[in-house]
Amino acid sequence: MNFGRAPRRTTARTRSRRAARAAVLPVAVVTAALALTACGSGKSGGGGNTNFVASTSDGIDTVPKADRKAVGAIKGTTLDGKPLDVSSLKGKVVVLNVWGSWCSPCRAEAPHLAKVAGATQGKGVQFVGIDTRDTNKDQGVAFEKNYAIPYPSLYDPTGRLLLSGFPKGTLNPQAIPSTIVLDRQGKIAARALQALDEAKLKKMIDPLIAEK
C-alpha cells in the first residue's frame, strides 16, 4: 500500500493564480531595475554592442557620427499637460535629461541645465526633461518652478519612456540623472550618467552645434 501523500491536483483556479503571478513578475523586475539605478554613481557603461568612445576622465560617452543610431519613440504629455513628440524636433540638437524631484544630484545639476538651455536656445538646441518616478505631477511642477527650468519635461512616472525609447545597442539612460544628446538627425551622439555642470554640458553640446 502507498501511505505517502496523495499527489496535489492542479485545478483551474491554481493555474489561474500561477498565471497571474507570472504576469506580475516583469513589472516587479522593471521596478527593481529602476530602483537600483536611481541617483546612480555616474559610472559610465555601454548599452549593448555600441560603437562608442568612453571618456573615463569625465564620464561622458560619445558616438562617432557614422556609428550613431536613431533614438526610439519618445513622446507623451508634459508636466504642463501638453503633447510632445521628440521626433518633431529633428533639425535641432536635442538634450534629453532624465530627472526626478526626489533625486539630490538632479537638484544639484538643475541650475546648470537651466542656464545652458537658455544660452544655447538661439543656436538650435532644445532641452527636454523626462521626469520619472515622481508619484504625481505636482512634485515635478514644483521642481521646475523652483529651479526656473525654461524647457518642457515629459511626465514618465513608471519609466516607460526610458525602457522603450532607447533601442538595444545604443547609449541609454542607466541611472538617474542621465543626460543624452541627440544630433540634428535625431541620432544618439553623447551620454552622461551623472549630474552635470555647465562645462560638461557644453562639452557634450558644442561639437554637435558645429556639425554640418
Rank of each mutant, 00 (worst) to 15 (best):
M1L: 10
A6R: 13
P7A: 15
R9P: 03
T11P: 09
A12Y: 09
S16P: 02
S16G: 12
R17V: 08
R18K: 08
A20F: 10
A20M: 08
A22P: 07
A23W: 02
V24D: 15
P26N: 09
V27D: 12
V27Y: 13
A28R: 06
V29H: 05
V29Q: 07
L34H: 07
L36K: 14
T37D: 12
T37L: 10
A38I: 04
A38W: 01
C39Y: 04
G40F: 02
S44Q: 07
S44C: 05
G46S: 15
T50Q: 05
A54S: 08
T56R: 11
S57Q: 13
S57Y: 07
G59F: 04
I60E: 06
I60P: 05
D61T: 11
T62D: 10
T62V: 13
V63D: 02
K65F: 12
D67H: 14
K69V: 10
A70W: 01
A70N: 01
A73V: 13
I74D: 03
I74C: 05
K75F: 06
T77Q: 03
T78P: 06
G81C: 05
G81Q: 06
L84H: 02
D85T: 00
V86M: 01
V86R: 00
V86W: 00
V94K: 03
V94P: 04
L96F: 02
L96R: 01
V98Q: 04
S101E: 02
C103N: 03
C103E: 03
P105L: 04
C106G: 00
C106L: 03
E109Q: 01
A110Q: 03
L113Q: 01
L113A: 02
L113D: 04
L113H: 03
V116C: 01
V116W: 00
A119M: 11
T120Y: 07
T120W: 00
K123H: 11
K123S: 13
G124T: 01
D131W: 02
D131T: 09
D134F: 04
T135L: 12
D138L: 11
G140K: 07
A142Y: 12
K145V: 09
Y151K: 07
Y151F: 14
Y151W: 10
P152L: 03
S153I: 02
Y155A: 06
D156N: 04
P157G: 08
P157D: 09
T158D: 12
L161W: 09
L163S: 14
S164F: 13
S164G: 14
F166N: 04
P167K: 01
K168Q: 15
T170L: 00
N172M: 13
P173R: 06
P173Y: 08
Q174P: 08
P177Y: 12
T179K: 06
T179E: 05
L182R: 05
D183E: 12
D183H: 11
A189W: 09
A189L: 10
A190G: 12
R191Y: 13
A192I: 13
A195T: 10
D197H: 13
A199Q: 15
K200L: 14
K202V: 11
I205C: 09
D206W: 07
P207M: 09
L208T: 12
L208V: 14
I209A: 06
A210D: 14
